[in-house]
Computed example of a mutant assay.
Amino acid sequence: MTIDRINPPGLHTPPGYHHVTLVPAGRTAYLAGQCPLDPAGMVVSPDILRQVDQVATNTLTALTSVPATPEQVVRTVIYVVSDDRTVLSSVWDRLRLSPIGAAFTSASTLLGVAQLGYPGQLVELDVTAALPD
């Protein structure tokens, strides 16, 4: 399976991701939003970077189950409870350096939001992966 990641002429050069990810028709895995929950279903920590680490761990577990790798991710949406660009950047940087870092070379969106689903939750990651036939 070929996954093409492109930045069309006329658009700004993004910091690590691509504007467009193109895959041939085939199987696709849509992961539920991955939250910073431990196996018991509890938010791991009030520390945002520790939450990012748990989200990365959970995402890798979900990808492996289908089976897929971070390199097969074609779209990510990162939700962060913050309107501070420094916080948003620290989450982006931590994810890019995580074991799922390759996932963020595809089409990616980073959003600051007012609230997420679990009390104390600061980060959530939505992932779509292209699977071989």
Rank of each mutant, 00 (worst) to 15 (best):
P99I: 04
A114V: 12
L49K: 01
T128H: 11
V43G: 03
I78C: 07
R94P: 08
L60E: 10
D133V: 15
L60K: 05
R94V: 01
G101I: 03
G26A: 12
L131P: 12
Y30A: 02
S45I: 03
P99K: 03
R5K: 13
P15M: 08
R94Q: 01
I48S: 05
P14C: 05
I48Q: 03
V74M: 11
P132R: 14
T105L: 06
V55P: 00
N58E: 11
G10T: 04
D83C: 11
Q51W: 07
L60N: 01
A62M: 07
A102H: 08
L125D: 06
P70V: 01
D53V: 03
A68F: 04
S90L: 09
Y17E: 13
N7E: 11
V113W: 04
R85L: 14
V127W: 00
L37F: 11
I78T: 15
L49D: 13
I100R: 02
Q54R: 14
I3N: 10
R5V: 04
A102W: 00
L111T: 02
L125K: 06
T61F: 08
D47M: 00
T105M: 05
D126N: 07
H12L: 13
M42L: 10
A114H: 13
Q51D: 04
Q34N: 07
P132S: 13
G101C: 01
A25I: 07
V81C: 14
S106R: 07
V52K: 02
Y17K: 12
D47W: 07
L116N: 06
W92V: 05
P39G: 03
L31D: 01
P39L: 01
L111F: 05
M42K: 09
A32H: 13
P132G: 13
D4S: 08
D53G: 00
L37E: 06
M42C: 08
V80N: 09
D83P: 06
P119W: 10
G16L: 11
P67Y: 10
V87C: 15
T28D: 09
E71L: 07
Q121P: 13
L122N: 05
Q34C: 14
G117A: 15
Q121S: 13
L63P: 01
P70L: 00
Q115E: 15
G10R: 11
V66F: 13
S90H: 09
L131F: 11
A62I: 00
V73C: 07
H19F: 03
I78Y: 04
S65T: 06
V77Y: 00
L11D: 02
